[in-house]
């Protein structure tokens, strides 16, 4: 495989995803087809007495959180520094950009040190999405399984995989300790950090597939809204 294929695919995918997500969030449509909701939106907000106005205000704000996680993510950083900034283009292939290099020591890149906050907020969002998945299995008060329920479940598993394989989470969970047996609850923290450490090598894989699964789930809910007759196994 030629060295430029990977960066080219990266550019196309990232631009495509960002464009689609922005369009979806700001399209003015609340992407909801009972009991399904797009992962860019959430049923938690706007149910009951509130409704659309609040959704309209909050959704773009909420959608920004996972986007923030991805922008500051150690894996995405590698991909876009290489593909977009060609810094470096590929290993031992020279630089695309001339001029003084400062790495991640200056504004704005120095802000990426706050990755852990994007992570913590995303964990909250992921809980919201999890509840949405539970609701996708309940239709008019009954247990229900449609293709959309499965799509949403798979999506949230992939998103969780991405979130929980995060380097910052591993650090906060126990990777930051020098000596597990020297602190309280060290054994538990070692187990947790160790488990996250085993998940970590798949961080890049989760990043890619979860990005596609979010977009595809949104498209799927829109299809159902547009009248697509999906297979339903338990209705």
């Amino acid at each position: 495989m030629a060295w430029w294929i990977e960066p080219a695919l990266t550019v196309v995918s990232y631009v495509g995803f960002f464009a689609y997500a922005t369009w979806s969030v700001f399209s003015g449509t609340y992407v909801f087809a009972d009991p399904y909701v797009s992962p860019f939106f959430s049923t938690w907000i706007g149910f009951g007495t509130f409704k659309l106005p609040v959704i309209g205000l909050l959704v773009p704000f909420l959608a920004v959180i996972p986007l923030g996680l991805r922008v500051t993510c150690y894996y995405y950083r590698k991909e876009y520094y290489r593909a977009f900034f060609r810094d470096p283009t590929a290993c031992a292939r020279g630089e695309g950009v001339r001029g003084r290099y400062t790495g991640e020591t200056r504004f704005p890149l120095v802000l990426w040190n706050l990755h852990r906050y994007a992570l913590l907020l995303t964990i909250v969002v992921t809980v919201f999405l999890g509840v949405d998945v539970v609701r996708a299995f309940i239709y008019h008060g009954h247990f229900f399984v449609g293709l959309g329920s499965v799509v949403m479940l798979v999506n949230v598993i992939l998103l969780s995989g991405y979130t929980f394989s995060c380097h910052s989470l591993r650090h906060l969970a126990g990777g930051g300790l020098d000596c597990y047996s020297c602190v309280k609850a060290g054994k538990a923290r070692h187990r947790l950090a160790d488990a996250l450490n085993r998940l970590n090598p798949r961080h890049g894989w989760f990043a890619w597939v979860s990005m596609f699964s979010v977009g595809l789930t949104d498209i799927y809910v829109r299809l159902v809204m547009a009248g697509f007759h999906e297979p339903r196994w338990i209705a």
């Binding site: 150690y74 120095v110 040190n113 706050l114 990755h115 852990r116 380097h167 910052s168 591993r170 650090h171 990777g175 930051g176 450490n197 970590n200 090598p201 961080h203």
Partner: peptide
């Protein structure tokens, strides 16, 4: 993944958090 990023996280905790 296992050396530089964990050290970056420690620096983030000390200087940026």
């Amino acid at each position: 993944d296992n050396a530089i990023i964990p050290l970056k996280e420690r620096v983030a905790g000390r200087y940026y958090d």
